[in-house]
Amino acid sequence: MPETREEILARIRSALRDAGDREVAAERAAIARGYIRSGHLGPEARLHLFMDRLRDYDAHVVETSADSLPRTIAALLAEHNQKKVIAAAGLPEGLLPGELSFIPEKQADIQDLNDCDGIVTICTSAIAATGTIVLTHGPGEGRRRLTLLPDRHLCVVRAEQVVETVPEAIERLGGLATHPLTFISGPSATADIEMTRIRGVHGPRFLEVVLVR
């Protein structure tokens, strides 16, 4: 209701009569942000922290080189006998093992997503301190449902994408802020029953991260 909008805004303004100076931008700029913004770890330590934190929340982590990436992916898929695997639209050329066949994301309907053995994506950035991968759902990252319905998510992370802190990741996302964003920290989980952490309620039960360095 348009009249409700005016009524609520009027009530807010009347409630704030005592609030004094109402200069928004200057007051906002004066907010003290004394927390840690940039990390202090070297590249090697940062990547180790990232892998530790991923493992701490039940993700499976494998390191590889750019040259061996397709071979590493093939080995991971074979390990769990994944045959029906969907590849995110727009994955970089040469990332997937050429000898295997993948279902292109564009051809997969919701039932395929529900029935497949797994999916492969890349990401936009990753946070070491929290063991998080960040998707902005651009090329190679899939539509949001791609990384949600299947049981296994294999995500390729390049070393230079890994930042140490949450503020660094938010800063990197700046220009993409109005994209759909998904922060993933380990596989889906719940602790709703007696606070016992159970993996895989509705999202993927298995998160496999391939770190390329």
């Binding site: 301190a129 949001r144 949450v166 994209h179 922060f183 993933i184 920290s185």
Partner: peptide
């Protein structure tokens, strides 16, 4: 948790 499994943002 250091971070919960999923944060979603959309516009």
């Amino acid at each position: 948790e250091r971070m919960n499994p999923y944060n979603s943002l959309w516009t």
